[in-house]
Nucleic acid binder design. Structure first.
Lengths: 144, 144
DNA sequence: AGTTTTCTGAAAGTCATTTTCAATTTCACT
DNA sequence: AGTGAAATTGAAAATGACTTTCAGAAAACT
């Protein structure tokens, strides 16, 4: 089942409706390579769909996060970003605080240790956030 | 050098001034055990210092974060929290999404792996954020 | 097709955070 | 100790991301 079908399915199960706006937003979102804020995606969408409002984009992104198609990211700059969940490929982020570049990484050994930690505290993990902030090679070289 | 001296030093270096408000806020903040939002700390302070305004608390917390006495925490609920940096004892957080309980943990093996990841990407880490969200034992038992 | 329910977009409302501004306080230098 | 430039303060207003409201429009069940 692809993600469009998955979304339709989710809508149906929740008694929600499939609308052209939701489909347009999902479709554009899935084509994204970067980490969109509501604002970003809203602006991108305006080119092809000038009638779609900001609130609808926002509401749809929340729906996508609810049904697992998107993850919400919070890098501490006061803006929530969304990124498509890549099937069975969880990853975390390295963020360059100079140029804003975002690098994705995944490290199963870290995931394992997380699980250990959670067990030690009788905790059941539902999700996590792991972000490394610093400087990428380019910025480190420039700001020397 | 204790943290009060450290703060004074920082203020001086930045051409800022040492005021009774800043000292009161720092002093109260250092006594805190939990993770205060600006609002939390402002309310606590009102007991002894009813004249200190919200904006001053907020501005001072930002200063404390700047000079490394406090760390900003963002648990994604739209409120920034601050916690005193404990000397040579970095830790991360387990957050119960049912009751809001916050458990601290530290796991040097995770820190090591982080460094490895950063090296692989030619990245220099300045700080990081690692949070595990889920249910604590108590909430898991209750919501059964 | 009709009816019920949900959606939508624009505008207004929230809420944490940030800025403004006039009055006050600090501090370097007499 | 006194002076004056510069920073600080608190209250209120502004900002900005996010959320809600509401009346008209669109979807989906019968």
């Amino acid at each position: 089942m692809d993600r469009i079908a998955l979304f339709n399915d989710y809508l149906h199960r929740q008694g929600l409706k499939n609308t052209s706006q939701r489909m347009a937003i999902l479709e554009r979102f899935l084509r994204s390579k970067s980490h969109y804020s509501t604002e970003d995606l809203y602006l991108k969408l305006r080119k092809d769909h000038p009638k779609i409002g900001y609130a609808t984009v926002h509401r749809t992104l929340k729906l996508l996060a609810e049904c697992g198609i998107a993850v919400e990211l919070n890098f501490g700059d006061g803006q929530t970003r969304y990124e498509p969940v890549k099937a069975d490929q969880h990853h975390d982020h390295l963020i360059c605080t100079s140029c804003g570049k975002i690098i994705e990484f995944s490290e199963p050994r870290i995931e394992n240790l997380q699980e250990q930690v959670a067990r030690q505290h009788d905790f059941i993990i539902h999700s996590h956030r792991h972000e490394l902030y610093g400087q990428c090679a380019k910025c480190a070289a420039e700001n020397r």
